[in-house]
Design a protein around this nucleic acid. Structure first.
Lengths: 122, 122
DNA sequence: CAGTATCCGTAAGGATACTG
DNA sequence: CAGTATCCTTACGGATACTG
């Protein structure tokens, strides 16, 4: 790989790249998508399965994913209420590139953090 | 793909995912890396090839990449000064997952933006 | 040429309390 | 149960001016 074809990244001044970064580059989106890969999940279950997320951020993240057509939201008119979230096909299609990224991280983050740590103290 | 193995993403409460997001989830990093895939590039050439980036953000982005060991910085002691940047092997290894992401964006962003637009006006 | 230094506005996200 | 409503802090990034 030596410059032959990063045009998909750099093309149009990075607009297509920016479009995807605008969606996934926040603290919770990819984590929520990955959690929904197991199937249909209720709000509270998501909240429990994603450590550290607040109700507010979970709601915001889900609403954005819904607006983008990556997640469906199904309200069951019961008491107490039951709301279920699931990935759309488009949402599912995000899993492989997300895995590619996570896989890269698993392979390289240790050395990256070592490099940064070495630089910091001396 | 149905929940069988997103553990690389969700594992450890998403720490490995967060580690990579902390690096690449900003406005310029992936664009700079992609631009450096062509080989060795000078500061001003980078500045010219990445539309919209300020000197300040280019410098900050490069310094972070350098601290992470993804980019080398070579100063040639001349007048006027010449500074060249290039990807390390680790830096190059980031290109494929970045392409996977960009490729996903190229395939799906149009429909995503259509979905969001449809939702917005009514 | 290759940066620093400074100032400033916005927006992302956390904490907490409340509700149909 | 599944959210809203506020308040608040900080971190990111843009604009501009200056320098070895």
């Amino acid at each position: 790989m030596n410059g032959e074809d990063t045009c998909m990244i750099r093309g149009d001044g990075g607009r297509i790249l920016r479009a995807v970064l605008d969606r996934i580059c926040n603290k919770w989106t990819l984590l929520v998508v990955a959690t929904l890969d197991q199937g249909t999940v209720r709000f509270t279950d998501l909240h429990r399965q994603i450590p550290g997320i607040s109700q507010r951020m979970l709601t915001l993240t889900l609403r954005n994913l819904e607006a983008d057509g990556l997640v469906t939201r199904t309200v069951h008119p019961e008491v107490p209420p039951r709301v279920e979230y699931a990935l759309t096909p488009t949402g599912k299609s995000l899993i492989p590139p997300a895995l590619a990224l996570a896989s890269w991280a698993a392979d390289h983050v240790p050395e990256i953090e070592a490099t940064r740590a070495a630089r910091e103290h001396g």
